[in-house]
């Protein structure tokens, strides 16, 4: 479904990705782990088409198509979904209206009829329950005044409604307490399906205790330095990244200056 070949990307003048190779098939769950500044969020952003990143070499195919040649909205309409590390607030636009607009652009793209407000509500009720989304959250402005946990839950709720074929979860566990983490993980697990691939980007082992991946990759300094199965994640948990020759607490300065500050602003 997704094939990344020798992918290089930079932000402003900082090269962050330095040759990523990765293949993801339908039905698989991949975890991408690594210390801060290793390029995890950059990889997620490049796949989604975030304009701040510039691809300098390599390529990505998605269902045989040149993914990098598609606009961000076309990638979304083709079924690529990014659960944001920092979900964005849009004051004055109700969560319900936003999500219905998103769903309907996708439906139009696939030649389906648009859903009106009533049909939409019927359709999302069950999914709200799945993620423990209170109806009041639907009528509030997108992410405005949401707690950290509510924002992350809202991302996974959007994913449940939009039913993407490739979902990328960028640090979805950050800022969640254990109960919220379980709810979110259950939501994601319910969406595991043979036709769907999921890439989970995370710093910690914690999330993948609940969303059990088929493959684990360790990203460091813009490259995948080790790949394995779930066992790899458990070893990392015990031994730390130092075990792979990655100095503990190492932050690649260029990456930190570039990616993290831009993403966090």
């Amino acid at each position: 479904m997704l094939e990344i070949t020798n992918l290089h990307a930079k932000v402003e003048d900082n090269e962050i990705l330095r040759g990523i190779d990765l293949k993801v098939n339908a039905g698989e769950v991949h975890a991408i782990m690594g210390p801060n500044g290793s390029g995890k969020s950059t990889l997620a952003g490049v796949l989604a088409g975030r304009p701040i990143y510039e691809v300098t070499a390599g390529g990505v195919t998605y269902d045989g198509k040149d993914l990098l040649g598609l606009s961000p909205e076309d990638r979304a309409r083709e079924g690529l979904f990014l659960a944001f590390q920092y979900p964005v607030e849009i004051p004055g636009v109700s969560n319900m209206y936003f999500l219905r607009s998103a769903l309907n652009t996708g439906r139009r793209h696939r030649g389906l009829d648009e859903l009106d407000a009533m049909d939409f509500l019927r359709m999302v009720r069950g999914k709200m329950k799945l993620l423990g989304m209170d109806e009041s959250l639907m009528n509030r402005s997108v992410n405005e005044g949401f707690s950290g946990g509510e924002k992350k839950r809202n991302e996974i709720f959007q994913m449940a409604v939009l039913e993407p074929r490739l979902a990328i979860l960028d640090e979805t566990d950050s800022g969640l307490d254990i109960d919220a983490l379980k709810v979110v993980a259950e939501g994601v697990n319910a969406l595991r399906a043979p036709q769907r691939a999921i890439i989970v980007v995370t710093h910690y082992q914690r999330l993948i205790n609940y969303i059990v991946p088929d493959f684990v990759h360790v990203l460091y300094n813009g490259r995948i330095v080790k790949s394995g199965d779930r066992q790899l994640a458990l070893e990392l948990e015990q031994k730390g990244y130092g075990w792979l020759g990655i100095p503990n607490g190492t932050l690649s300065p260029a990456a930190v200056a570039g990616a993290e500050s831009v993403l966090a602003r």
């Binding site: 975030r50 936003f98 607009s101």
Partner: peptide
């Protein structure tokens, strides 16, 4: 740009995103 990108990642065009944000 983060607001616009967020909307685009959900499938909306830049124009629709701006219109939605301004109307909000």
């Amino acid at each position: 740009e983060d607001q616009i990108f967020y909307c685009r990642q959900r499938g909306m065009s830049t124009e629709d995103a701006v219109s939605m944000i301004v109307n909000g």
